[in-house]
């Protein structure tokens, strides 16, 4: 392959830069808007830059008057719990489905696939009724339970597990290792990237989880961040855009920070599974 003409390269970079700017503009607008007052946002003609970059009123209001601290703590708890349960159970299930022969393992895998295809809407009411009968309404446990093991995680782990050579596991078994030793000491270290993928997908899902968290919560003490964001920006006569934008930044921050540190795995996860 010959090197493309420098002019072509330059044009390509130019186009990509324009594309990146277009994609980033709305985000920049949100970021700048977070420092504006409602009057500034509503003013004509709207200015791009806030009058005062040190105007943290929106952020302060969210945390002092609109319980954002509480919502943040709830969200972190829910996300942490979901990531832990999903990684643990999906890895175990994936290992069992790929590497262990047991009666009905094809049926079980079929059920996992089927569960991926059932629209979430169809399960909504039955799930809620079950939660009510378990007496878990208005608890964070109820938020976590239905997504404690997501079929997509099991599917991803099973596909990755398939690529782990049987010989390695066989060798360990011949050396007298039990299933749990094999799982924790041989298998787990080999599927690190897959675990990262499942963890990231689970985190994004549970972090953005809105409707179910809202339904389960019976008062604002158990709201998570996305639900809190939706109520915090409701103003007397119209949406309070300053609060909405500042809240969006607060919700986005942990995801951005995570992305900065785990960029490699994000890309790998999306490329490997086709799922964002």
């Amino acid at each position: 392959m010959s090197k493309p003409h420098p002019l072509v390269t330059a044009m390509l970079y130019g186009l990509l830069t324009i594309g990146a700017v277009i994609a980033l503009l709305p985000f920049v607008w949100v970021l700048l808007g977070a420092f504006k007052s409602q009057a500034e946002i509503m003013a004509a003609p709207g200015a791009w830059l806030p009058r005062n970059f040190t105007n943290l009123a929106n952020f302060l209001t969210l945390f002092t008057e609109r319980m954002f601290g509480r919502y943040m703590a709830n969200s972190l708890l829910v996300s942490a719990a979901t990531v832990i349960t999903n990684v643990l159970f999906a890895t175990m299930a994936g290992y069992a489905l790929a590497k262990l022969e047991f009666p009905g393992h094809k049926l079980v895998f079929g059920c996992v696939l089927a569960a991926m295809m059932v629209p979430y809407v169809a399960l909504f009411v039955p799930q809620f009724v079950i939660i009510v009968q378990m007496g878990l309404v208005n608890t964070l446990t109820a938020v976590v339970l239905p997504i404690a093991v997501m079929p997509i995680g099991v599917f991803i782990m099973r596909q990755f597990a398939d690529s782990v050579p049987d010989e390695l596991l066989e060798a360990a078994r011949l050396d007298g290792a039990g299933e749990f030793t094999i799982f924790f000491r041989i298998f787990l270290p080999l599927v690190g990237p897959a675990i990262a993928t499942v963890a990231i997908i689970t985190f994004l899902n549970s972090w953005n989880y809105f409707l179910w968290s809202l339904i389960v919560a019976q008062n604002q003490e158990t709201y998570t961040l996305p639900v809190g964001l939706a109520v915090a920006s409701q103003g007397a006569r119209s949406t309070e855009y300053g609060l909405l934008l500042a809240g969006a930044i607060v919700v986005l921050m942990p995801v951005l920070i995570l992305f900065l540190f785990l960029q490699k795995y994000f890309v790998q996860g999306i490329a490997g599974t086709g799922i964002k």
């Binding site: 009724v129 009510v132 409707l211 809202l214 019976q218 008062n219 604002q220 939706a230």
Partner: peptide, 22 residues
């Protein structure tokens, strides 16, 4: 106890609660 609910999801939440008796 007053609970604030996102306006555009209010109906969904109330209908679910009606269905489940909560």
């Amino acid at each position: 106890q007053v609970t604030q609910i996102p306006s555009d999801q209010f109906d969904t939440k109330l209908l679910t609660a009606i269905a489940a008796g909560t």
